[in-house]
């Protein structure tokens, strides 16, 4: 099957545009995934000084899916995440979260509160805060100014933080400043911060860099277990890792999708062999 053939079938149908379709009841802040996909990127172009980091990129992520994105350096993987999280505005194209949330019109914090969480390629944490505080800050809560001023941790919230500390194996480092963590531990802590946010969509950029073999395995387990309840998009170079978790893989090249399908399909795709795996 040509993986490219899936395109065009699932264009995002906006609830209000669909004549005769059943009415969707969408509560404010809720993501409408009634048509399947949770993320719709359509014809996105981003250029930096004339260089197109993304070139008419079209990509759909289904609700609850675990998707791996691979591609050579500079393919535009990180830029794609920048577009989804509001860090970079596309020159053209549309990006929707569910049926009605236009990501290109939302600011970073709105996108985050709506339920898109992100782990950066280079671990970025709050170095002067303890591991516990990093998780506390990430925790899903009313993040407006005044409620934050008077916020107190409930027993339930403490328990949740401890639970996540266990999951990311940082219980012993609970009160250590994040600056003192190793690279791998910082990666884990960022994953922990993602879990604390409890987002609908997790964007995970190169999660296993700097991790030991065992840690890599645990990451694979964790990401797989998250899929279903959450949609997970993983960017990774490590083919063995991708193979171990992948259900569906998208290959990016020069800012657009080169191929899409399961790992075997993608690996045997002539264009992919040509530009990426063969090289």
């Amino acid at each position: 099957m040509n993986p490219l053939s899936v395109f065009g079938k699932r264009r995002r149908e906006r609830a209000r545009d669909t004549a005769g379709a059943e009415r969707h009841t969408v509560t404010a802040g809720e993501v409408d995934v009634s048509h399947g996909p949770i993320l719709y990127l359509e014809n996105i172009t981003v250029s930096f000084d004339g260089f197109k980091a993304l070139n008419e990129l079209t990509l759909y992520i289904d609700d609850g899916e675990l998707r791996c994105i691979i591609g050579p350096n500079g393919a535009g993987k990180t830029t794609m995440m920048d577009v989804i999280t509001g860090k970079t505005r596309p020159d053209s194209g549309t990006a929707f979260f569910g049926q009605i949330m236009d990501l290109t019109r939302m600011s970073e914090y709105e996108i985050a509160s709506a339920g898109i969480g992100r782990k950066f390629q280079k671990p970025t944490v709050f170095p002067q805060h303890t591991v516990f505080e990093n998780l506390e800050l990430a925790m899903r809560a009313d993040k407006r100014v005044w409620p934050t001023l008077v916020a107190r941790l409930s027993g339930e919230q403490r328990a949740r933080i401890d639970e996540v500390l266990e999951i990311v194996m940082l219980m012993a480092q609970r009160d250590l400043r994040a600056a003192e963590l190793s690279h791998g531990q910082k990666q884990w802590m960022e994953i922990g911060m993602l879990l604390m946010q409890d987002p609908r969509v997790l964007l995970v950029d190169e999660p296993i860099a700097g991790m030991t073999h065992q840690e890599t395995e645990r990451t694979a387990e964790l990401l797989t277990s998250l899929a279903g309840k959450h949609s997970v998009v993983v960017v990774e170079h490590d083919m063995a890792f991708v193979r171990s978790i992948a259900r569906k893989v998208t290959v990016l090249h020069e800012g657009h999708v080169l191929a899409e399908g399961n790992m075997d399909e993608v690996q045997n795709h002539p264009a992919v062999i040509d530009v990426y795996l063969g090289a």
Partner: peptide, 30 residues
């Protein structure tokens, strides 16, 4: 104020402004 969660957010903004945005804080307001 600096002991409150708001205080911790403010320090977070100082150290990694973008990160604070991406976990849902409206940095400008803080």
């Amino acid at each position: 104020v600096v002991n409150s969660k708001l205080g911790r957010v403010v320090v977070a903004v100082r150290d990694a402004e973008d990160r604070a945005r991406f976990i849902g804080y409206k940095v400008e307001s803080f």
